[in-house]
Design a protein around this nucleic acid. Sequence first.
DNA 1: GCAAAGTTTGACTTCGTAGTCAATACTTCA
DNA 2: TGAAGTATTGACTACGAAGTCAAACTTTGC
Lengths: 207, 207
Amino acid sequence: MTWTDAGTEPVGRVQRKRDKRIRQILTTAAELVGERGYEAVSLEDVAERLDVTKGSLYYYFPGKDELITAAIETLGDDWSSRLERLPAGQEGTPGQRLRALVREHVAIAVREYPAALRLFLVPSTWPDAQRTRIKELRRRHDRVFRAVLEEGLAAGDFAVLSADATLQCMHASMSQAPEWCGALRGRARERALDELTDTLMKLVAPG
Amino acid sequence: MTWTDAGTEPVGRVQRKRDKRIRQILTTAAELVGERGYEAVSLEDVAERLDVTKGSLYYYFPGKDELITAAIETLGDDWSSRLERLPAGQEGTPGQRLRALVREHVAIAVREYPAALRLFLVPSTWPDAQRTRIKELRRRHDRVFRAVLEEGLAAGDFAVLSADATLQCMHASMSQAPEWCGALRGRARERALDELTDTLMKLVAPG
DNA sequence: GCAAAGTTTGACTTCGTAGTCAATACTTCA
DNA sequence: TGAAGTATTGACTACGAAGTCAAACTTTGC
């Protein structure tokens, strides 16, 4: 995507303001699309939530497709890199690290990307452009989990029948988290996420 | 829904033919909606796949909403009752029965309702009318699994931290099955489904 | 303060899809 | 065979959402 790139010139106040506006738009769009799905969201809906009119969005993006694709990309990028940074700084056994990773992943999902998570669930129902991005994004998340999983397997701390199947189950379950816990608040939610995490850890339990 | 009910009169050839046509329509609609999602499917798409024109669908259904709702209901009913019949006829330990249930569920899903399964994944993105049905449907499936799970827990064959979390993980993972294995054929697919089943059985493993 | 650049607006066109309906074709059965 | 009942068609309207754009408004830098 190139219509948001400003090239390599120094970034001045104007550009920063523009970037900020673009981020607002992308965040709002991702929110809405996560809530209702691609087709059910109109640019008028997005504009309304931003207190502007539709035409304004076309000033920043050539069309709906590009806007939504950019939203998936940007938010997905944030989320992925956050996830990728996690295991690096962690200490302890692979078991402790995997647990922390799962726990943090669902926490982020439920707290900050409740809607966006739905992006991952059914790639095949998305239009082509978005489907591709979503699959990439998913692969990237998978990689983080797979690394820790394989470490644990090598160390003999984990045992699985199939790394693929295990990761698929984890991924599917984590993606559903906002759907179950989204309505809960406070301690109830934390407890639900703890239970989910511990339940998923059984998937890699040895013996 | 009452526009398909014929009351209690004896069902003649004409009525049977009508019912058959309605089933064709519902099956086709469910297929398409499963593939692309509610909003992305037009009644013209459905009509085209049936080699008729849109107007014909309005002869049987008052509108898109009712058609899709009926499709979810009918196919969901078939599937649910099939699932409900399974554990009754089974022998063996709860472990064997749960495994059979999971295995059969994913097999049915991937083989016969590959698209329809997506219905379950993200209820919140559906229009109200459908969302309600989908949640009901899901509750019904849950009940079947929960019964066997609780039996196993009572017998001491299973151990879980939280029955809810366990069922959620199973459900989420099974729902995703068509997304992973849909492309596989023959033995490769069977093997993938076996791995998935065995992986999920770890969720209830004691110890 | 003012000109240029950046941003927003609202009225506009275009297009696809839901839904309607009178006319037509097909089925059934007396 | 033909009349009544059943199913299908295709042309129609209504409407909402995508996308366009000249004009108006706001911000920035001199």
